[in-house]
Structures are given as structure tokens and as C-alpha cells.
């Protein structure tokens, strides 16, 4: 029980930190950052969109690392980390895929374009959805973890190749919409950084919580086994 309380204290601290930084980020996004001259208010979506994308990529990198360590050490801890990170990564990628079209519609006059970054994000989303489905359809928990770890490695290795191939593919076909960069004012960069910090805190908070849920699930399972044994003896 003691470790449980300790874990809870850490995640509570992290939760409050996430709340605080997110509040600051919200204030900065809506008040501190200047309105973009050409795009107007819709550009404020950028701070969430980019921050979510960064954290999603980071989450998938954690899946990759967790998978490798799991295959080496076979510790449930790293499997839980990989699982939690994959689920959070999919959630953040979904945010990216939803905020993207909302931002793109008024600016590019199209909901979607098959640009390398967009398409790679979509494929990434599919790969990690597949990761979650694969986990769900393996029976034993050891098999589940092992298969997921193998796919976590294969999926991550695939991402750079997907990006490169789509980039070549798009340069051959006529580009409808030019991506183009924005010139960010210093206050915008500050806002973006705080926003990324906020998302990072949220990520780690969710990660801790999700791992905790998985640990508790395993404990319940073990208790059930014990009870069943007592019943039949």
C-alpha cells in the first residue's frame, strides 16, 4: 500500500504542475501571443497543433525504446510504458489530425492535402492503431507484450521510410498547395515553447496514470487467480 500512496503523490504533483503550465499556456495562446496578420485568430490553433504533434512523435519514440528494452529485459514495467505511450500517442495524433483540417480549411481552402507531413502523420496514426489492435487480439499477457514490442520496433523503423517515400512521391506530382513557413514573432515562439512544455507535462501525467491502471489490473487478475485457487481447494 505504501508504494501506492507514494506513486499517487508523484502523479498528483505532476498533475498540478500540468494544470498550472497548461493554464499559463492557455493565457499565452489567447492573450500574450499577437494575432497573426494574414491568418487571423485561427492561427492560434498552431500552438496546440504543433505541440500535440511533437508530443505524439515523442510518445512513439518512447514506444520504440520501451519495446527494445522489453525484449531485452522482459520486465512488465517497460511493456506498460510502451502500451501507455502508444495509447497517448494515438490520442495526440488524433488531436493533430483534427486540428489540422480545421486550420487548413480557411487558410489553404482545402481540408486536406496529401503533403508528406500530413500523410506521414496519417500513416503513423494507422500504425499505432494497428499496434493497439494487435495487443487486444493476443491471448496471453506475455505473448501480448512480446508481439506488441516486435511490432513497436517494426512500426517505428518504418516511419522515416514512409516520410521519405511520400516526399519523393509528392515532388513528382504537382503540388496544389505550397506548405511554406511562417515568420514567427519572438512572443509566438515563447508561447509555442510554453505550450509544448504544457503538453509534455500532460503526457507524463497521463503516462504515469495509465501505467498505474495497468499495474492495478494485473494485481486484480492475480487476486482473482488466488481466489479461484482457494475456491477449488
Amino acid at each position: 500500500m505504501e508504494t501506492f500512496d507514494k506513486d499517487n503523490r508523484y502523479s498528483n504533483i505532476l498533475g498540478w504542475l500540468a494544470f498550472l503550465v497548461t493554464s499559463v499556456a492557455l493565457y499565452m495562446v489567447f492573450e500574450y501571443a499577437p494575432t497573426e496578420r494574414v491568418m487571423g485568430h485561427i492561427q492560434r490553433l498552431f500552438y496546440f497543433h504543433v505541440a500535440a504533434a511533437w508530443i505524439a512523435f515523442f510518445a512513439f519514440f518512447v514506444v520504440f525504446v520501451g519495446s527494445i528494452i522489453y525484449l531485452k529485459k522482459r520486465s512488465t514495467f517497460w511493456d506498460n510504458i510502451a502500451l501507455a505511450s502508444a495509447e497517448i500517442g494515438v490520442a495526440f495524433t488524433t488531436i493533430v489530425l483534427i486540428t489540422g483540417p480545421i486550420w487548413a480549411r480557411p487558410i489553404w481552402n482545402a481540408w486536406w492535402t496529401w503533403d508528406p507531413r500530413l500523410t506521414t502523420t496519417l500513416i503513423l496514426w494507422f500504425i499505432y492503431i494497428a499496434y493497439i489492435i494487435l495487443r487486444a487480439s493476443a491471448d496471453e499477457s506475455e505473448k501480448k507484450a512480446r508481439f506488441a514490442a516486435i511490432f513497436g520496433i517494426v512500426g517505428f523503423v518504418d516511419v522515416p521510410i514512409v516520410f521519405m517515400s511520400i516526399r519523393w512521391w509528392r515532388t513528382i506530382h504537382p503540388q496544389v498547395i505550397e506548405g511554406g513557413g511562417m515568420n514567427l514573432a519572438p512572443t509566438m515562439v515563447q508561447t509555442l515553447l510554453v505550450s509544448i512544455a504544457a503538453f509534455t507535462f500532460i503526457y507524463f501525467y497521463l503516462l504515469l496514470r495509465r501505467v498505474k491502471v495497468e499495474v492495478l489490473k494485473n494485481q486484480v487478475k492475480e487476486m482473482k487467480e488466488e481466489l479461484r485457487k482457494l475456491q477449488y481447494n
Partner: peptide, 23 residues
């Protein structure tokens, strides 16, 4: 080989294979 050991092997293979073979 991976999906053969799961419950939904035949359904699962295309779902996990197609995103990976995009390039």
C-alpha cells in the same frame, strides 16, 4: 508469423501490414 498466434489472425494481418508497406 506474428498474427498466426493471435485470435483474429486472418483479419489482423492486413490491418497491421498495410500501413507498414506504404513506401
Amino acid at each position: 508469423a506474428l498474427t498466426a498466434n493471435t485470435r483474429t489472425s486472418e483479419v489482423l494481418l492486413p490491418i497491421i501490414l498495410f500501413p507498414v508497406i506504404v513506401p
